[in-house]
Design a protein around this nucleic acid. Sequence first.
RNA 1: GGUCCCAUCGUCUAAUGGUUAGGACAUCAGGUUUUCAUCCUGGAAAUCGGGGUUCGACUCCCCGUGGGAUCACCA
Length: 467
Amino acid sequence: MSMFNKYFIDYRVFVTLLIMSTEKNIVTRMAPSPTGRFHVGGIRTAFYNYAFARKHGGKFILRIEDTDKERNQKEYEDEIYEVFKWVGMDYDEVYRQSEHLERHQEILRNLIDNGNAYEAEGAKDGSGNVIRFKNPNKEITFSDEILGDITVDTTDLGDFVIARNNQSPLYHLAVVVDDYDEGVTHVIRAQEHVANTPRQILLHEALGFTTPTYAHVPFILGPDGKKKLSKRDTNVAALDYKEQGYLPEALLNFLAFIGWNPGTEQELFSKDELVNAFNLEQVQKGPGGYNLEKLAWLNKQWLNKRTEQEFRAYIDPLFNELRDTPIYREEVMEKITPLIRERTEVLADVQTMITEGELDYYFVDPEINTEKVIWKKGTKEDTISHLEKVSEMIGSYSEDWNKEDLKSHIFPYADELGRGDVLWPLRYSLSGRDKSPDPFTLLEVLGKDTSLRRITSTINELRKNTG
RNA sequence: GGUCCCAUCGUCUAAUGGUUAGGACAUCAGGUUUUCAUCCUGGAAAUCGGGGUUCGACUCCCCGUGGGAUCACCA
């Protein structure tokens, strides 16, 4: 091996190590304030931070920005933790900003001592002097990972207030200090903060802090795609989705794809796949709308990935009431679970099936409306005859019949005499409903005795009706 | 209003100068051995407008238009 090659290989190893060590240092954070219910938009922002950190082997911090004593509420703080747990975003460190008050005060004093900030009259509540930052009035340019270069003349900002008084630092100072102290390298946050960024950079410079890399993610718009997502149009509290029975995988998949896309045609991404595919380069600049129908579809896709047992556990609480009644039968429940799944996008759909009585016929004999038994232009006589014939056919089966067997015998008959004329009355006799699974499925679920009883009963009703 | 940002089917988006502008949701039509659902196949559907640059522009530049953010002693 020549010296050159040897050197070349060493150089590549060195660079690789350098990149790895650089990536290890990545630190991101989510900094919500507990002044309201945690928003779905917050999940997305948090997730981008989480994904970026995890993908690069870095650190993800959760920082509760609880310095606004007036508006903070403990329940909101707890809700933040609950949401993170629900969607499975684990953080390496968690802080409450209020715990850093002394540090913020210390920095504030330094700023004043160095002449970078000063007391000014006119506290709104008349309690004394506010602290203003001495703005050097310069042009600030920062390179946003998503938006590109942004230049702002900070002269317009004036000497902005950084503390309520010399004991109470405000937001801009607090974030700057905390991000620095916690070693945050990438600030990924909502686009409403772009205008705050120059102020914070000014502070970094006065303090001698290195400025983190910024990435401002676009807004999420409401379902109309125009206005900002608000609780007027839809549920925005993250936990509402948990309560409504949305799967965390589906919500995360959905949210991550508003304003970001891996560029492939894959639609379904697990949390880990999302982390793996995530990159800041492909985050959209413009805002994106909130399409609930797609969320519902995604929820169904994720539901279908669950095992039968998991799906059963998912819907089971809805059947608590029914389970305590004498009509409930566990064997039936087991058989209809896959049927229910096929008709379910979100848990609310199952609740609707129950309240609308769409599942009743699985447990009790339905009321038969003789008007509805006959298919389209069919006659009563033919219908009775078809039902009798089918009755005869299934009567010859043993109790452990199965769907395919039944189908292979009944269908040829139906095919010959008219599918609708034979199959509709059969299905309707069994279910008493306009809509239900197909008759063969019904026969299988209901069993021989029940099926025969219902068919016979329908035939009798039909005859009675003749007068 | 000042400053800053943004703009592809109805919606989420792909295409970083050369594609019949691709995919998904929704929608429409047909099929899957009645109906509902599932599933499959197919259709309709977009580069905000005007100028440049270029052999060639969704893509780069400028001007409009539209939308948004911010201009707190909230975060």
